[in-house]
Amino acid sequence: MKIGWKRWSVLPGFGLAMGYTLTYLSLLVLIPLAGTFLKSATLTWPEFWETITSPRALASYRVTFGTSLVAALLNAVSGLLVAWVLTRYRFFGRRFVDALVDLPFALPTAVAGIALTAIYAPTGWVGKLVPFKVAFTPLGITIALVFIGVPFVVRTVQPVLEDIEPELEQVAASLGANRWQTFTRVVMPAVWPAVLTGFALSFARAVGEYGSVIFIAGNMPMRTEITPLLIVTQLEQYNYAGATSLAVAMLVVSFGMLLTINALQWWGTRRHLA
């Protein structure tokens, strides 16, 4: 049954809910982003292009996207492991560990940055023990990004793992599969869309991270300067158009990457969830 352009539904208030959603998203997401694009448009094309492809900007993209990607990959693996341990084993202090996972969400990022710097600086507890430099290198940035990103993977994977019936693993065993085969052929196909989501969230968060990174990064131009810091530097020099241009460049790349991940996920799940 059709009433006008709306399809009939048992749930009331489609118009209201849809209107609210669009307004809300516009106010919070679309308008600020559009503002960014408009501000950067005050530059001419050559100026814009020059700003976003300056050697210093290019180096900062490499640092930001490179470390974010590595951190998200590390988080995907270790987050899956943490989620696995939390769902599959019953041990003393499990609830405590479970609560610990959320801490990076709650902690002010500056606190995290300072704490990590203190530990990984050449004079810090861990920095003293390892023969190479950790803080003030891309490695240090990666550590900070791993720290702030790990809850995303754990919290997306955990409910999916909890939903996998023990029967699936039991039936695999009865059919002669060993533990590794059961994990790779039965458990992983079920959880990998969730792992991918966690990876994407962790990656997106890492790309935009500022607070924790600036302390541990050392912020040396061309080497450990992240794009968000470069944007702030531009702002401090009252170069608003330059700052927004860099923001636009970052936005487009991030959006492209997230879209690719979503497409991958859609492709992976659509077949059996028909």
């Binding site: 019936e165 029967e167 699936l168 196909p189 059996h272």
Partner: peptide
């Protein structure tokens, strides 16, 4: 409840 592998 069958316990079929949903992705296969």
């Amino acid at each position: 409840h069958y316990a079929l592998f949903r992705h296969m």
